[in-house]
Design a protein around this nucleic acid. Structure first.
Length: 677
RNA sequence: CGCAGGAUGGAGCAGUAGGUAGCUCGUUGGGCUCAUAACCCAAAGGUCACAGGUUCGAGUCCUGUUCCUGCUACCA
């Protein structure tokens, strides 16, 4: 796609305003987007960089209820935290707004109305579960009940986590609301659907016109198209969100994924009167930076909305990233397994560029990647300090020592100089090409090659030796060295803006355009050099160790806090208890059940026979370690088929605060078959 | 279950239209001393997840298998 565009609209995912942001968000979309935008600006292109917080939807109302505040208070709090940390981190949005703004409500309603008026929605009345006490319809996830397939009493309305089957809320036996605990009732409700099934041919054509998109993006999209798209409800029964602009729709709001992407448009409108140019002109390139979980919304649903409306351009590219893990584990807000940006900024003051560098260097561009503190330290110490910082420092110190801190005269260049400068000259275009094709890791590596080139140049020309015999030649060498540093100031700007700024101060130059890069006359002879100190400092072992420890501590704390002693269940009669036949037996063999994560097949000597019990404890115990242990089990539980076998009973376990399991065992070995009462 | 993405030297990644497997970091040895023990040079290290197949030739194409991830709460 070599189509040329007059301007670019860049969006970065609207983040959900119910928590602070972490490194995964940054590496996933904000940093790549920022690099892209900063480069475009440096290249003199017309670009607008738009993002904000998404403030509607069910999870925010739940969070508000939990904390005993209003949804508005929740989003206000997080909007500020998020916005401030982005700003301090140097993510250079042209506007960072929010979907609770008036402009956004109006824009969303306008688009909804337009699609409605054009007859593009279908109306459907369905029966949904309603919680009478909480006075709200329940999202699938907030209905809990017994799984019709495996009997798990805590299956969710959309899925049973024990057997993995996909459910719909009406299949659940004994459904209850996770909000009030009450049994919800079925209530008829009318909603408006976007008939994606009918729009599929159009969407297929759109996707087919972009073979250049990343494979992970195309793969995901094709997976949805192959399954066949289904109509999707664009309204919800809820009181938190954007009102549906139709008569008799009290208590209905738009589906968050309807209004959220419209946020990109409304925020642009908030930014500039020229907003229509950025959203309606076919000569505008629209690029969405997102994480992989948002692919379907940005590649199919939002384009479908735009088409249904008819006024807006579609994305030219959606360079979605995969996910970043932390120390080998999935980043998780609820488990507090994350490096939070606002905390990093506090603990590593003025060191934004280290994190920017490390995250850009290991961004999950093609597959999930891993952030570790040890990698952070190594990358800083050996690459930023050792290569980049050191090169600049060498050039500056040599100039200070030998030429009174002024750019020396560039005399006659020899072949070696010309060769080095020729290599330098090629790099800006290469870096630009990588960035324009969304290969930011590659671009970053090429930028570092400039610093490597500088180090090698100094090592090969040995100005500290030459100065003893030939001052004129030394002047030329250091001039070239400083010119390379000046190039670095331009080329590192998209990735490390704070460093670029510092470097410009050192060299006493203004911010230069990308097109100036590659030249060897950026610095004039006699221009003073100001040594403002080191660009990067080493990260010590103790710093890194402290971070790792903090992570583990936070994780442990969170686990403990998350656990409350559950309330006592409903009272039972002695007869109910007496029905249960609980006995002691010994595990005589244990093995993993093939294809199952958690199931262990236990053979138990119960004093009468060998009994097979399948138990979901595989994540807590190694089979070989539990053979010979005595266990307590429910002996008269109806046999249940599982994974092609039959389980005859249930082993009793006690769960500790941290989720670990222990067997319930007699305090001394007793005979197999001993009855518990 | 299904669909999709991934699996390449110790670590992180490239590998473009099938033709002797590259880069960065780390390791080892050497050089240098202007520089934050930093920089420069060199070397070692891979049966490209596993098993088949197509081909003169496969990391690259096809089939099957295993593991990780997404689609599925928190979530880029």
């Amino acid at each position: 796609m070599s189509k040329t565009f007059k301007r670019t609209t860049v969006t970065a995912a609207l983040i959900y305003a119910n928590g602070p942001i972490h490194i995964g968000h940054i590496a996933g979309c904000y940093l790549p987007a920022d690099i892209y935008v900063r480069y475009l600006r440096a290249a003199g292109r017309d670009v607008k960089f738009i993002s904000g917080t998404d403030e509607h939807g069910v999870p925010i109302t739940i969070k508000a209820k939990k904390e005993g505040v209003t949804p508005q208070e929740v989003v206000d709090k997080y909007y500020k935290i998020i916005k401030d940390s982005f700003e301090e981190f140097g993510i250079s949005f042209d506007i960072y707004s929010r979907t609770s703004n008036k402009v956004h409500h109006e824009m969303s309603q306008d688009i909804f109305k337009k699609i409605y008026d054009q007859g593009q929605f279908t109306e459907e009345t369905t029966e949904q579960y309603y919680d009478e006490k909480a006075k709200t319809f329940l999202a699938d996830r907030y209905i809990i009940g017994t799984c019709p397939k495996c009997g798990n009493e805590n299956a969710y309305g959309d899925q049973c986590e024990r057997c993995g089957s996909t459910l719909s809320p009406t299949e659940l036996i004994n459904p209850r609301s996770s909000l009030s605990g009450d049994k919800p009732i079925l209530k008829a409700t009318k909603n408006w659907y976007l008939p994606l099934d009918k729009m599929q041919p159009m969407l297929e054509e759109y996707i087919a016109s972009h073979p250049e998109w990343k494979t992970n993006v195309l793969g995901q999209v094709k997976s949805w198209l192959n399954d066949g798209l289904k109509p999707r409800a664009m309204t919800r029964d809820l009181d938190w969100g954007i009102k549906v602009p139709l008569p008799d729709t009290e208590g209905k709001v738009m589906y968050v994924w309807f209004d959220a992407p419209i946020g990109y448009i409304s925020m642009t409108k908030e930014l500039t009167d020229q907003w229509e140019l950025y959203w309606k002109d076919p000569e505008t390139r629209l690029v969405h930076f997102i994480g992989k979980d948002n692919i379907v919304f940005h590649c199919l649903i939002f384009p479908a909305m735009c088409k249904a409306d008819g006024r807006f351009i579609l994305a030219d590219n959606v360079p979605a990233n995969e996910f970043m893990n932390l120390e080998g584990d999935k980043i998780s807000t609820s488990r507090n397994w994350a490096v939070w940006l606002h905390e990093y900024l506090r603990e590593f003051e003025g060191k934004q560029d280290i994190l920017r560098y490390v995250l850009a260097a290991s961004a999950p561009e093609t597959k999930d990647s891993d952030f570790t503190w040890s990698d952070f330290q190594i990358r800083n110490n050996s690459e930023l300090v050792g290569i980049f910082g050191n090169f600049v420092n060498r050039a500056v110190v040599l100039t200070e020592k030998n030429f009174e801190g002024k750019v020396p005269k560039q005399g006659q260049l020899n072949d070696y100089d010309r060769q080095a400068l020729a290599t330098l000259q090629e790099l800006p275009a290469k870096i630009a090409d990588s960035i324009e094709n969304y290969r930011f890791r590659e671009a970053l590596a090429l930028m570092m090659d400039v610093a490597r080139l500088g180090n090698k140049y100094l090592a090969d020309t040995e100005p500290w030796k030459v100065i003893k015999t030939d001052s004129e030649r030394t002047a030329t060498i250091l001039n070239v060295g400083l010119q390379i540093a000046a190039n670095l100031a331009i080329l590192c700007e998209p990735f490390m803006p704070f460093t670029a700024e510092k470097l410009r101060k050192v060299l006493n130059i203004e911010s230069l355009s990308w097109s100036e890069a590659g030249r060897a006359d950026l610095l004039a002879e006699g221009q003073p050099i100001t040594n403002v100190g080191l660009l990067f400092e080493k990260v010590e072992d103790v710093t890194v160790a402290a971070q790792v420890q903090k992570l583990e501590e936070a994780k442990r704390q969170n686990l403990l806090e998350g656990k409350a002693v559950p309330a006592i269940k409903e009272e039972v009669k002695y007869d109910d208890f007496a029905k249960m036949d609980i006995r002691v037996g010994t595990i005589i063999s244990a093995e993993k059940v093939a294809k199952s994560k958690k199931l262990l097949k236990l053979t138990i000597n119960d004093g009468l026979k060998q009994r097979i019990i399948l138990s979901g404890i595989g994540e807590h115990f190694q089979p070989e370690n539990i053979v010979g242990q005595q266990v307590t089990f429910l002996a008269n539980l109806a046999p249940r088929p599982m994974m092609g076998m039959v389980s005859e009973g249930m082993v009793l376990m006690a769960e500790d605060k941290d989720g670990s399991l222990s067997f319930i065992q007699p305090d001394k070995n007793i005979w197999n078959g001993g009855v518990v009462s």
